[in-house]
Each structure stands twice: as C-alpha cells, then as structure tokens.
Write a protein that binds this DNA or RNA. Structure first.
Length: 328
DNA sequence: GCTTAACCTGGACGC
DNA sequence: GCGTCCAGGTTAAGC
C-alpha cells in the first residue's frame, strides 16, 4: 500500500534528503513505507524509453498528456518526490503509472520461495516496478525495437516526440508529449527515416493509419480482454509479432502473465535452467516453451519477475552500461 | 513447422 | 581512420 503525503510533518522527516529547488516549484511526496520503489531501475529497465535524468538527479518525462518530474534520494526505496505539468499535483496519474496498488514485497517473497536460483537477483534489484504506460506510446515505441539497441530506441522515440508531439514547459525545460495517433498517421516517412527509424518508418505510419480506422475504442477494448485474446488481437496487426504483443500486454494492459521473449530472455532461461533444450532459433513453439517456463516458476505475476531478471541480465552482459543518458 | 534473408544504422571493437 | 559485426523483431519465401 502506498500513500500520498504532502504534510509538513512528512516533509520535515525527509528534509535531510530534500529534492532540488527550482523557481517556485512545490514538490509532492509519495511515501511508500509499506512497499518498494526504485526509480532508477524502474525507469531504465527497458520498459520505457523517454525518461531522462537531469544533472541534479531529477527524472524528467511524460505520462500521457502530462509532463512529470520525479526525484528520489540515493539508496532510498521508501519514498520519492514528484510533480506534474501543466496540471499540478495529479496524484492519480503517478499512482496508476507506477502500479502502486501492487504489493511488490509480497510478490518477491513468493518468487524467493519458488525459485532459489534467482533469489539474489530480486534482492539486488529491489523496487523495480512494472509501469502502466499509455497504450499508444507503448504500441508505437516498441515498433522501433526491431533489430535495434536500447540507446537507439531511446533516441528514435525521443525524435518522434520532438518532431510530432506537443511541447510542455517545466522548470527543467521543455518536454515533448508522445504524439497522438493522428499525428503519426500523417507523419513524413522521409523525415522519420532520417530520425533513426529507418525501414521501421513506413511500418509505424501504416500502423497509425490502421489504428485511426479502428478507432480508440478498439485499443481500449483490449484492456478488458483475457491475456490470450488481447495477445491474439495485437498479433493480427501488421508489424506486431508475439514479442511486441507481449510488451504491450505487460507494460500497459496489466496482463501480468505476459512474457516478452527476446534474445536476452531466451539466453537467461537457458543459462538458469540448463535442463532446457538448446534452441537454435526463436520459433513460435520455442517462444511459447520459454514463456511457459517463466510462468511455471513465477506464477500469475511472472511478467514482473521476468522484467527484473531481464534488467539483471542487461547489467551482467554489459558492465558499465548506463541507460538514459543525462540531458545536457 | 523450421530456416533464412532482407530491412537501416550507429556504436563497439579490432586492427 | 577504417572495416566488420551486432542489436530487445517481423515478414515472406523456400524447403
């Protein structure tokens, strides 16, 4: 259970680690004493691409039609500070975005008991939470992930927002909201190709045009569907395969059993559980077997566990890797 | 049902 | 400085 607090008493409690001052900005405090939140791990684990850490440690980004700034003291996992723009103090958007109703500590105790091999990973990356992202942003952003690197995905998505998104002013500077479907549908393929989207540019525009035809209700309808139905509807879209469909299911549709199987997740499963077959390539059958191996071990919230393991694997295979470079 | 090639491009790496 | 390889996938053709 996480609580919104803004009382002077709580502020005073945390004065030793008070966030940076900016003009007349008034911070709010999210006190999560009963659970864990790790902003660094949560915002850089590969589930979202547009949060940037500023020189003073504040995270600047957007959630839907709001810009937001977040700040958390070093090595602190029980509270963070936040503010939203242009509508200030929008607690609901922060609470929902971080899924603060999910008791992560309880989940981690369950995973610890279920699979001793990975118990240390969950302790090491405590507080990595899955986000509930806006549907359109998640759907279009992950179209860029095909045969790409995390660094380039971040730059590509940022360019898309800068070119076609609405700007919001904050004390840290301008933040571009993620573009609406209508803006992407009418975007220039040539411009997008130069904005690092390459051969993915026509796919992105085609998908946006199709989503315009289907209407907002179609996408929102996925929220109420069971995981299998939502996944099947998504893979029927052009340019959306099983992996991207699972990303959308997990990162914005709250289908916690979804397991996006990529090369890292495949290698991790083969290393952790060597009894698994030595797969040569990620065929649909192998994809399902690997995903089921995670679901079998970690249960209905397997997607949360998988993302923490994925984050750990990124750090293991890329020592010194620093995602989300600070803005200059 | 599996394998393979094509699709872009920037960064890492070896020389 | 230059060449080569690789990266969070999807799709279609060939077997």
């Amino acid at each position: 259970m996480s609580l919104l607090r803004s009382s002077s008493e709580l502020m005073a409690k945390h004065m030793s680690s008070y966030p940076p001052k900016r003009y007349n900005l008034s911070w709010n405090l999210a006190d999560c004493s009963f659970d864990d939140v790790n902003l660094l791990a949560t915002l850089t684990c590969g589930q979202t691409f547009r949060w940037r850490r500023q020189a003073d440690g504040a995270w600047l980004g957007s959630i839907g039609i709001q810009a937001a700034v977040l700040w958390q003291p070093e090595d602190c996992r029980d509270h963070f500070f936040w503010q939203t723009f242009p509508v200030e103090n929008d607690w609901a958007i922060i609470r929902d975005y971080f899924n603060l109703g999910i008791n992560l500590r309880a989940l981690q105790r369950g995973w610890h008991d279920a699979e001793q091999l990975t118990a240390d990973v969950f302790i090491q990356h405590v507080g990595l939470r899955l986000l509930q992202q806006p549907l359109e942003e998640c759907l279009y952003s992950f179209q860029c992930a095909s045969c790409n690197t995390v660094t380039k995905i971040e730059r590509s998505v940022e360019e898309l927002a800068r070119l076609y998104g609405s700007p919001i002013e904050t004390p840290w500077g301008r933040v571009s909201l993620f573009p609406a479907t209508s803006s992407i549908a009418t975007a220039s393929e040539e411009v997008l190709r130069k904005a690092l989207w390459g051969y993915r540019a026509p796919r992105l525009i085609a998908l946006a045009k199709l989503m315009q035809e289907k209407g907002d209700a179609w996408l929102q309808g996925l929220v109420g569907m069971p995981y299998a139905d939502a996944h099947r509807n998504l893979t029927d879209l052009p340019g959306i395969g099983p992996k991207l469909a699972d990303c959308v299911c997990l990162f914005c549709l709250r289908k916690w059993e979804a397991i996006p199987v990529d090369t890292h997740v495949l290698q991790l499963a083969q290393r952790l559980w060597p009894t698994q077959n030595e797969y040569r390539s990620l065929t649909p059958r192998v994809y399902l077997q690997i995903a089921d191996s995670y679901r079998h071990r970690y249960g209905v919230y397997a997607g949360w566990a998988q993302q923490i393991l994925f984050y750990s694997e990124l750090h293991r295979t890329r020592p010194g890797w620093i995602p989300c470079q600070p803005a200059i």
